[in-house]
């Protein structure tokens, strides 16, 4: 059974932010929110690395477990989606997210949050696949067309990989062997194998 994943090869990411820009444009993500962003580690040192991050679509996803209104759900590809009609903007998913993925429009009174928005793995939401309504709330549904997240497909250095976890893992491993150095897959133990870490 296919289980999709993300991995960002920090030996290749050049912090061009094309992934973040393409994502924002493709899904018409509102002002003030980012579904994908680039984080730079050890800036200005020889160990400087950049890494593109978003919702990792975790195994045993903590956001789904803590959502008080059951608006978050997981699909059998591993993709974690949510229902904006039900979300109450409580912020629980943000506190439970190991990758800081959920975003909220800061729209309403008292500084309270609006309805959550996050990376959908380009897989839309609970509305009929490819419908106008789905596009308005969640952006394009590329998975229904057999395509992968745009951020990865647009990546010019192929640093960001998406798709079938086994294939992605294989591509990444071949690279590490071929070049003979390089770090491991960032975030995988936290996102996909929570028990391996004794967590």
């Amino acid at each position: 059974m296919t289980r999709v994943k993300f991995v960002c090869d920090t030996e290749r990411c050049i912090e061009c932010n094309a992934c973040a820009t393409a994502c924002k444009n493709e899904h018409e993500v509102p002002w003030g929110m980012v579904r994908r962003r680039v984080v730079t580690l050890n800036d200005g040192t020889p160990e400087e690395r950049s890494i593109a991050t978003s919702c990792m679509h975790c195994t045993d996803a903590p956001c789904v477990a803590v959502c008080p209104v059951e608006c978050l759900y997981q699909t059998d590809l591993g993709i974690v989606l949510h229902d904006k009609d039900i979300c109450i903007g409580c912020g629980y998913c943000f506190y439970a997210c190991p990758f800081g993925a959920p975003q909220y429009p800061r729209a309403s009174l008292f500084g309270s949050r609006g309805k959550m928005d996050k990376c959908t793995y380009c897989a839309g939401g609970p509305e009929p696949n490819g419908s106008e309504e789905e596009y308005r709330k969640y952006g394009r549904n590329r998975v229904a067309e057999g395509k992968l997240p745009l951020c990865a497909e647009v990546c010019s250095t192929r640093a960001l990989l998406a798709g079938d976890g086994e294939v992605v893992g294989e591509i990444f491993r071949e690279r590490v062997i071929h070049r003979g150095y390089g770090s491991g897959a960032w975030g995988w133990n936290t996102a996909y194998y929570p028990e391996e870490d004794g967590a």
Binding site: V176, W188, Y193
Partner: peptide, 9 residues
Amino acid sequence: AAAEVARPS
């Protein structure tokens, strides 16, 4: 293979 490439949490 995956265990080999995954970075520690």
